[in-house]
Simulated assay, not measured.
Amino acid sequence: MNAAEGRSLEVQGVSVDIAGRRIIEDVALRARSNVVGLVGPNGSGKSTLLRTVYRMLRPSEGQVLADDRDVWTMPARKAAWVIAAVVQDSPADLELTVADCVATGRLPHGRLLATDSAEDRQVVERAMVTAGVAEFADRDVSTLSGGERQRVQLARALAQEPQILVLDEPTNHLDIRHQLQLLALVRDLQVTTLVTLHELNLAASYCDEIVVLEHGRVVASGTPDAVFTPHLLDRVFGVRAETLVNPLTGRMQLVFADS
């Protein structure tokens, strides 16, 4: 994958109502061939917004556009060519081997596991190598740890060859080494990516832009340096913070204390 393959993703005035309650209010964001991090306190609406992007929850108002086309007007298979998602608590396909699980990412392209082509096999192998799960190819998914399963789900998403990647807390269940490896991998793909992250230092280190949600509304957006100010972190997250330069990476690092 390269930067030319990344499509523009635009969320225009999206609002979401669930059970008569407005969860998301007039959210707008835009991304193309970069990594946009969606952050906010618990209950701020991050996962709800992602569900509107990968077509699990239709917005009450507004549009989600991929290259100026509303994803909700696309046929489901066409949308799956464009957008792939790795979500929290996604089905683990415990009865499949890792290779077969990753191969299900080819289904939107019209292939069946029993008749996959040499091209499909190459795509699946490449996705497993990229996600670091090729060594598990013949193992049942049920035998893997939670972090290993998470990387299998990423490999399955990569096997779709999407232009837009949606990741909901992809570093959950991963140890620190695999957190850093996974986010470096995602950044290096140069594919339009929208990712929710709980750990703000990971967002600061690996995202090109940050969108902050609070009570279902966007309260800040921009580069990590512009967004992660002591004032915003105190107001939105309730912590005292200072910013440093990480001596190993040269990127922003946040240090926290209770307010």
Rank of each mutant, 00 (worst) to 15 (best):
L197D: 12
E135C: 03
S44T: 13
A137F: 05
L167S: 07
T52W: 03
T52P: 08
S259Y: 03
E5C: 06
G45K: 07
S117G: 09
A76E: 12
R69G: 00
A76W: 00
T97L: 04
T115P: 01
T104E: 01
R187V: 11
E214F: 11
V141M: 11
V218N: 01
R51S: 12
V218I: 07
D208F: 08
G6W: 08
L96P: 01
R7G: 02
R217H: 12
L112M: 11
F228G: 02
D68Y: 01
A131S: 15
G40D: 04
S142V: 14
A184C: 06
V102Y: 04
V64Q: 05
T52V: 07
E161V: 09
T97A: 02
V245G: 03
A84H: 08
L144Y: 11
D188T: 11
V218C: 13
I18H: 04
A66G: 00
A203T: 12
V152C: 10
Q88I: 06
L154H: 01
A137V: 03
L144H: 09
D138C: 03
R7A: 12
G146A: 04
M1L: 06
H178R: 13
T48G: 06
T193M: 07
L182T: 15
S145H: 09
V129R: 15
P41T: 12
V195Q: 02
T130Y: 01
A79N: 04
S8C: 06
L144R: 08
T171M: 00
T48W: 08
I83T: 04
A220I: 09
A66E: 00
I164G: 00
H178I: 07
I24G: 07
R30V: 08
E135Q: 14
S142A: 15
R251K: 15
A159K: 13
V141R: 06
T143M: 10
E214V: 06
L38C: 11
F228R: 03
R106S: 00
Q12E: 14
V133Y: 04
A159V: 14
I83F: 05
I176C: 01
Q122T: 12
V98N: 05
V191A: 04
L180G: 00
G238T: 06
T229Q: 02
H215S: 15
A127T: 02
G13K: 14
M74L: 15
L144I: 12
V14R: 00
Q181Y: 02
E10S: 14
V191T: 14
R187K: 15
P170Y: 03
L180E: 10
T130W: 08
S44F: 10
R177K: 14
D26C: 00
R156V: 13
L185S: 03
D120Y: 13
P247Y: 01
I24H: 03
Q253T: 12
W72F: 07
I210P: 08
F228D: 02
T48P: 10
R126I: 00
N2W: 03
V166L: 12
V239I: 14
Q181E: 15
T229Y: 04
V35C: 09
E161Q: 15
L202G: 08
D17P: 00
A28I: 00
R106W: 01
P59A: 09
Y54E: 10
P59N: 06
T192Q: 06
D26F: 01
G45A: 06
